[in-house]
Each structure stands twice: as C-alpha cells, then as structure tokens.
Simulated assay, not measured.
Amino acid sequence: MSVSADGFNASSLFEQLAEGLKDDKIKAQAIKQVNAVLVITLKNKEGKDQHWVLDLKKDGTLAKADSAPKSDVQLLLKDADFVKLANGKANGQKLFMNGKLKVKGNMMKATAIESVFKSIDPRPKL
C-alpha cells in the first residue's frame, strides 16, 4: 500500500520513512524511542488535508488515512513546512512558536519523531 498522496511534496519523505521502517533494527529503535501513535496532518497548496498515521507503539508502521484516528499526538502543519522540518531546514520549535506547527496531545512524543527521521535519513552524515 502506497503512502504517497497526490499534490503533497512530503510524499517522498513518507515513502522513505515507510521503507526505513521495513528494517527490523530501525523499527525496534523507533518504537523504543517514541512509543506512541503519531498522526501527521498536512495541508497542501490547494488547501487539501491528508493524514498519515505513524504507529511507533506496536507495529512500527506508516499508513495514509482519510481522517485522523485517535492518537497519542497529532502534528498539524503545511506540506512545505513539513518537508523543511524533515530535511533539517526548519526547526520544529521555531515552527511551533510561529504558529506554523500545531501539536495536539503529548508534546514530548512530538519531539521524539525528529530522531526517527534522522535515523532513517539516507543522506550521508558529515
């Protein structure tokens, strides 16, 4: 099942994340670090919302959803801001302070997601 969504630049990042979670070692590490179900809700340039459910509590899976299910934490932001955040070009705290990132639920769990992206980043570490 594909995790990409038409019109969302973040689709490739979610594909990368889903691919990374197929590695049992990375999956186990992510579950240990985060231990939560995260819903990432993005809004694209056309104003369309898309939800992704990242289960880092039990399964270590990522799925696309039409509506936001119950979760430990939900991140709401624009597609473009999420791409910057995932690529390390934006700071989550700054986005939050500037009102570009909204967090519903457990704030500490939200900060843990950054380490998961870093652990599956295919780019060479300098």
Rank of each mutant, 00 (worst) to 15 (best):
N91E: 14
K125Y: 03
L21Q: 03
K125L: 09
F96M: 10
L75W: 15
A5V: 10
K64D: 00
L95S: 04
H51C: 12
D6Q: 13
I120G: 04
L75T: 06
M97R: 10
I113Q: 09
I26F: 12
V34L: 05
I31A: 06
Q74M: 04
R123P: 06
F96K: 11
V53E: 02
G88E: 07
N87V: 00
F14M: 14
M108H: 05
N9Q: 15
L101W: 05
I40L: 14
A68Y: 06
L85H: 03
D79Y: 09
K89F: 05
E19Y: 00
D49I: 13
D55L: 01
D6A: 14
D121Q: 10
E19H: 05
Q50K: 13
A80K: 13
A5F: 11
V37H: 00
A28F: 06
V73Q: 01
L13D: 06
L76G: 12
V103T: 14
S119M: 15
K43M: 10
G88A: 08
K89Y: 08
K78V: 00
Q74T: 09
K89Q: 15
F14P: 01
T61W: 00
N35F: 06
L101D: 02
A63N: 09
E19G: 09
D49K: 15
K125A: 07
A65K: 04
A90S: 09
I31Y: 05
L95G: 02
S11H: 05
K58I: 15
G7N: 11
G47T: 09
N98D: 12
K22I: 15
K43W: 08
L62C: 06
E15D: 15
T61I: 12
D121K: 08
A80W: 03
Q33I: 11
M1N: 03
L76F: 12
I26C: 08
G99C: 14
E114N: 14
W52Q: 07
K70D: 14
A63M: 10
E19I: 00
Q33R: 07
G92D: 08
A110L: 03
E46T: 07
K45Y: 05
V37E: 00
I40Q: 15
K57R: 13
